[in-house]
Nucleic acid binder design. Structure first.
Length: 503
RNA sequence: GUCCCGUUCGUCUAGUCAGGUCAGGACACCGGGUUUUCAUCCCGGCAACAGGGGUUCGAAUCCCCUACGGGACGCCA
């Protein structure tokens, strides 16, 4: 008899919870439920630099908000834990050692500079960039010596030079990729941590994952995984690569172009069940073509073969329509009231706003006009108000710089925001008051409002960013936007004055 | 640049595996009706098989080529 179906989602806690994660989670969950299996949540935090506990917490919370439940995970435990890769390093190191001992992997001492150089040359020669096997020629004695000397090293996977890797994707059929296209993948970094590829394969095996359902972006590295399974003497799971969610311009859904954080949708007033319903119709239709369905209905009727392969564009209009139907058809007015209060209609929210509004109040009726921007998804304002007395292009420039600077803020509170704008004012040699005017308008929709930094803190990072983006759009529509060229030179200027941009 | 994956209305998609009804539904948009406004709701309209070549009595469906789109090519995942 076949083994139990076990699927997993493996988010990396390196940023805000992404809708793509929720999308993958939904399909993994549905497949597991449909086949009376289990879904595992595993935290892939092998990137020591970028992973944070806050982000992990946020991901767990966002998925729970959506109603996605996992059977095993770092919070609820399970038979195959720990479920956080940073707590499993010994396991990986043992397997890496086994691979080295069996001659399937080797130590590499090459410098970043040499690798960079090599990559450049290969690109120039129209070849696929690939490690040239330089350190493969080291004798065991040399390796031992350099290792003892304390030279930093990584461990690479030995990949055949000829032939091809064939594997089956449940949706796409047979895929074959020449081994010569596959790099000698680093499986252990110089900090001793495994890379994704190694950790992923080891964990999927140890956690008895039967079906790997993941994004299309992984197709080209699947041969590395297949090879690892072979070398380690394990049988590989069934692979299914789902299409990627797209921006309206068809590129992979990204926060630069779209709100991608689950908390954005939460903060701007969407219902979790509507959100999940909408994600369920991306690349998929139920057998009876229903458009409104519960998570249970989705899971009970789920057939993975019905997934369609074209990358679906995330369409806010349709999401809103779905959400509207839930509000009107699936909830009673009492329930709506309750959900509204849970959202931003209750004391927990208003008690934060009152102190900010109070100095500006004469009567109660002053309160809502002042705080409406916190509840309004998209406050509107005229172009002239945004620009004020400043040069429109200068406003665009400041907004763009602020957008980049705000990406660096990791704790979104009043003080951090204040310091961002102070730095901005200093660097631009502008008075803070003058600098802030367009930001007041784009965040609150008005020149007269609550204190900006508190307001932004309350609004949250995602909503604030999207408003700056909308202001930039408005400027562009009025021929005051940044041209492609202007953007490039601004980026250069920005790097010099403010340092590197981060993702 | 190299490799891989994809391609049905503007968008999400049904139909493709087992070739044969005017290519169906939904969002958006447009028009009409209900409604003291608006919204909801109801009715109607617009609108697609990327292109070319095969196979076949017959192709959205099977095969090949081209174009276009996307992804991967990190000591990120």
């Amino acid at each position: 008899m076949t083994e139990q179906v076990r699927t997993r989602i493996a988010p990396s806690p390196t940023g805000p919870p992404h809708v793509g994660t929720a999308y993958m989670a939904l399909f993994n969950l549905a497949f597991a439920r449909r086949h009376e299996g289990r879904m595992i949540l595993r935290i892939e935090d092998t990137d020591q630099l970028r992973s944070t506990p806050e982000s992990e917490e946020a991901i767990l919370q966002a998925l729970s908000w959506l109603g996605i439940e996992w059977d095993e995970g770092p919070d609820c435990g399970g038979e195959y834990g720990p479920y956080r890769q940073s707590e499993r390093t010994a396991l990986y190191q043992a397997e890496v050692q086994r691979l080295i001992d069996q001659g399937h992997a080797y130590l590499c001492f090459c410098s970043a500079e040499r690798l960079e150089q090599l990559r450049k040359e290969q690109m120039a020669n129209k070849e696929t960039p690939r490690y040239d096997g330089h350190c493969l020629s080291l004798t065991p004695e040399e390796v031992e010596e350099r290792k003892n000397r304390g030279d930093p090293y990584v461990v690479r996977l030995k990949v055949p030079d000829e032939g091809e890797c064939r594997f089956t994707d449940e949706l796409r059929g047979e895929i074959s990729i020449q081994w010569s296209q596959i790099d000698h993948q680093i499986i252990q970094k110089s900090d001793g941590f495994p890379t994704y590829h190694l950790a992923n394969v080891v964990d999927d095996h140890l956690m008895k994952i039967s079906h790997v359902i993941r994004g299309e972006e992984w197709i080209s590295s699947t041969p590395k995984h297949i090879l690892l399974y072979e070398y380690l003497g394990w049988s590989a799971p069934v692979f299914t690569h789902l299409p990627l969610l797209r921006n309206p311009d068809k590129s992979k859904l990204s926060k630069r172009k779209n709100p991608t954080s689950i908390t954005y949708y939460q903060d701007s007033g969407f219902l979790p069940e509507a959100m999940l319903n909408y994600l369920g119709m991306m690349g998929y239709t139920l057998p009876d073509q229903r458009e409104i369905f519960s998570l249970n209905e989705f899971c009970e009727t789920f057939e993975i073969k019905r997934v369609s392969l074209g990358g679906p564009i995330f369409d806010l209009d349709k999401l809103k329509w779905v959400n509207g139907r839930y509000l009107r058809e699936n909830l009673t007015p009492e329930e709506v009231l309750q959900r509204l209060v849970e959202w931003k209609g209750g004391p927990s929210f208003f008690s934060q706003v009152i102190p900010l509004a109070l100095p500006r109040l004469e009567t109660f009726s002053d309160f809502f006009p002042l705080s409406q921007f916190l509840l309004n998804e998209n406050p509107l304002y005229p172009f002239d108000e945004l620009v004020g007395k400043q040069e429109p292009r200068e406003v665009a420039r400041l907004l763009k710089i602020a957008e980049w600077e705000l990406e660096k803020v990791d704790s979104w509170d009043r003080d951090s925001l204040a310091s961002v704008f102070q730095i901005l004012a200093e660097t631009e040699s502008k008075k803070l008051k003058e600098l802030l005017t367009p930001f007041f308008v784009c965040i609150t929709g008005s020149k007269v409002s609550l204190p900006l930094f508190d307001g932004m803190a309350l609004l949250g990072a995602d909503l604030s960013r999207s408003r700056i983006r909308k202001a930039l759009q408005l400027l562009a529509e009025n021929d005051a936007g940044l041209s492609k060229k202007g953007l490039k030179s601004l980026e250069k200027e920005y790097r010099q004055s403010y340092g590197k941009r981060i993702d």
